[in-house]
Measured scan of single mutants.
Amino acid sequence: DELEKRVKKIARKLNLSLDQVEEWLKRNNNDELVEAVKRLKKK
Rank of each mutant, 00 (worst) to 15 (best):
D1E: 11
D1K: 09
D1A: 11
E2H: 09
E2D: 12
E2Q: 09
E2F: 09
L3S: 07
E4C: 12
E4T: 06
E4P: 02
E4K: 05
K5W: 10
K5T: 13
R6P: 00
R6A: 14
V7F: 03
V7G: 01
V7E: 00
V7A: 05
V7H: 02
V7R: 02
V7P: 00
V7N: 01
K8H: 11
K8E: 13
K9L: 12
K9G: 09
K9W: 08
K9F: 07
K9H: 12
I10S: 01
I10K: 00
I10E: 02
I10P: 01
I10G: 00
A11C: 15
R12W: 05
K13A: 13
K13P: 00
N15H: 13
N15Y: 04
L16K: 05
L16E: 03
L16M: 15
L16S: 02
L16F: 10
S17G: 06
S17V: 06
S17Q: 05
S17A: 06
S17Y: 08
S17C: 13
S17R: 03
S17P: 06
L18M: 06
L18K: 00
L18R: 00
D19Q: 07
D19M: 06
D19H: 07
Q20F: 05
Q20K: 05
Q20P: 00
V21K: 00
V21D: 00
V21N: 00
E22F: 09
E22G: 04
E22M: 10
E22P: 01
E22H: 06
E23D: 13
E23M: 05
E23G: 04
E23R: 06
E23F: 02
W24H: 06
W24K: 01
W24E: 02
W24P: 00
L25V: 03
L25N: 00
L25Q: 00
L25K: 00
L25Y: 06
K26A: 11
K26T: 11
K26G: 08
K26P: 00
K26W: 05
K26Q: 11
R27M: 14
R27H: 11
R27A: 15
R27Q: 15
N28L: 14
N29F: 11
N29A: 13
N29D: 09
N29K: 11
N29P: 07
N30Y: 15
N30M: 15
N30H: 15
N30A: 14
N30R: 13
D31P: 13
D31T: 14
D31R: 11
D31E: 12
D31H: 14
E32G: 06
L33F: 06
L33M: 09
L33K: 00
V34H: 05
V34D: 04
V34Q: 07
V34S: 07
E35Y: 00
E35Q: 08
E35H: 04
E35N: 07
A36G: 02
A36I: 11
A36L: 08
A36D: 01
A36F: 05
V37K: 03
V37G: 01
V37W: 02
V37S: 03
V37L: 08
K38G: 06
K38C: 07
K38A: 06
K38W: 00
K38D: 07
R39N: 10
R39W: 01
R39M: 03
R39E: 07
R39L: 03
L40T: 04
L40K: 02
L40S: 03
L40C: 08
L40V: 09
K41I: 13
K41S: 03
K41T: 05
K41Q: 10
K41W: 05
K42F: 03
K42A: 13
K42V: 11
K42D: 12
K42I: 08
K43V: 08
K43W: 10
K43S: 09
